[in-house]
Simulated scan of single mutants.
Amino acid sequence: MDSSTVINILIFALAAWFIYSRFAPTKGLKTLKDPDFQKELQQKDNFLADVREPHEYQRGHIQGAVNIPLSQLRNRINDFPNDKPIYLYCQSGMRSKQAAKILSKSGKTQLAHLLGVISAYSGKVVK
């Protein structure tokens, strides 16, 4: 095998790992569509976190949400409760899924996130 073949194999393997790590299921994470997300938020004593950046949060967020950006999450793990379900959302669902992976690795077990884009959320949004 020549060196260009080895390099191509390594690039492909890294790309495949990157894609898998972004889209692989997160253990214990419930993915909820808007109606189910709203229903669970109303029925349970929970913690709702918006993991978007502050400027995105300020443009509009779900009522009752605490802004803990994904970029700050590792330093703010202790802001999340251990004894309540944690509901996450972001702009598209990607950051909330990443946040769930981090929280899961830190021992949080009751995790759910909103499927899809925040603009599809039909509940009350605060601006």
Rank of each mutant, 00 (worst) to 15 (best):
I9F: 13
I7G: 05
R76M: 12
K33Y: 07
G116L: 07
I118D: 03
M1P: 02
A24Q: 02
L29I: 13
A100L: 09
G60D: 04
D45W: 00
D36H: 06
V6R: 14
E53F: 03
G116A: 03
P35H: 04
E40F: 04
N8Q: 07
K97V: 06
R95D: 00
P69W: 12
V66G: 02
I77S: 08
P54L: 05
E56L: 03
V6K: 13
R22A: 11
K33T: 05
G123N: 07
L88W: 04
A120G: 05
S122K: 15
R95H: 01
A112L: 11
R76W: 05
K39T: 12
F23I: 12
Y57Q: 09
E56C: 05
K101C: 01
L29V: 07
L103E: 08
I68D: 07
D45R: 08
Q110L: 11
Q98P: 00
Q98N: 05
I9S: 11
E56V: 08
D50I: 09
Q58S: 15
V125H: 00
Y20N: 07
F37Y: 10
L115M: 09
L111G: 13
F12N: 01
Y57T: 02
G107Y: 04
I68S: 03
Q58M: 12
E40Q: 15
R76P: 13
L114E: 04
K105T: 15
R52K: 10
